[in-house]
Simulated scan of single mutants.
Amino acid sequence: MTLGLTLRAFPILSQEFRVLFAARRLRPRTAATTRRERWRRWRSEVIDMLATAMTASLRRADEMGDAITARGGSGQISDRPSRPMPSDAVALTVVLAL
């Protein structure tokens, strides 16, 4: 179920990142003259982008959680007792290999 939700949310998240990068390009910048200034600016931009991406991801996750709850939740899937199967081991191996 988690993998399914991840695959469904990936296009939404990639669109969110495109918007974030476009907004960053619109911000005015002054010319950095020294290597130290360029390093500080780069580090600041990376931190800003990570913080913004985390905020956007958490907001989308909250919205998706609300949508799942409104549709009855995942009770039908999680109510059944289950254990890992051989196909789960194969999937885990593929994910770790990637």
Rank of each mutant, 00 (worst) to 15 (best):
L92D: 03
D48F: 10
R41E: 09
R36K: 10
L5P: 02
R38K: 09
G72S: 04
A22W: 05
L92E: 02
A31H: 05
R59W: 05
I77N: 01
D48Y: 06
M49D: 00
A89M: 07
R18D: 15
M1H: 13
T2E: 10
T2Y: 13
A89Y: 09
A51W: 10
M64T: 10
P28K: 08
T55P: 00
I68H: 02
S44I: 00
V90L: 15
D88W: 03
V19T: 15
W39A: 12
Q76G: 06
S82Q: 03
R8G: 09
W39T: 05
V19R: 13
A56M: 04
T55G: 04
L92C: 01
P86H: 07
I12M: 14
V46L: 12
P81R: 02
R40D: 00
A32F: 01
F17E: 11
G4C: 12
S57R: 04
A56H: 05
T55R: 14
D66W: 09
I12C: 12
A67P: 01
P84D: 00
E16Q: 14
R71Q: 10
L92P: 00
V90K: 09
G73P: 05
I77H: 07
T2L: 15
Q76N: 07
W42K: 10
L7R: 15
D66K: 13
P84T: 01
I68R: 01
P11Y: 08
G72Q: 06
A89C: 05
A9V: 08
P11W: 05
V46K: 07
A67L: 13
L50G: 01
I47G: 00
S82K: 02
S57K: 02
E37M: 08
M54F: 11
M85A: 13
R18H: 15
E16G: 14
V95M: 03
V94Y: 04
G73K: 01
L5I: 12
T34G: 01
R41K: 04
T6G: 12
L26A: 14
F17D: 09
R18F: 15
W42N: 04
R41D: 02
L7C: 12
M54S: 10
T34D: 02
G72I: 08
F17R: 14
A51D: 02
W39N: 00
A91N: 07
L7I: 11
V90C: 01
G75K: 03
E45K: 06
T33W: 03
Q15K: 14
A67N: 01
R43H: 10
F21S: 07
L50Y: 03
S78L: 06
V94W: 08
Q15P: 05
A9T: 11
A9R: 14
L20Q: 10
I12A: 15
R60Y: 10
R25Y: 03
A91S: 05
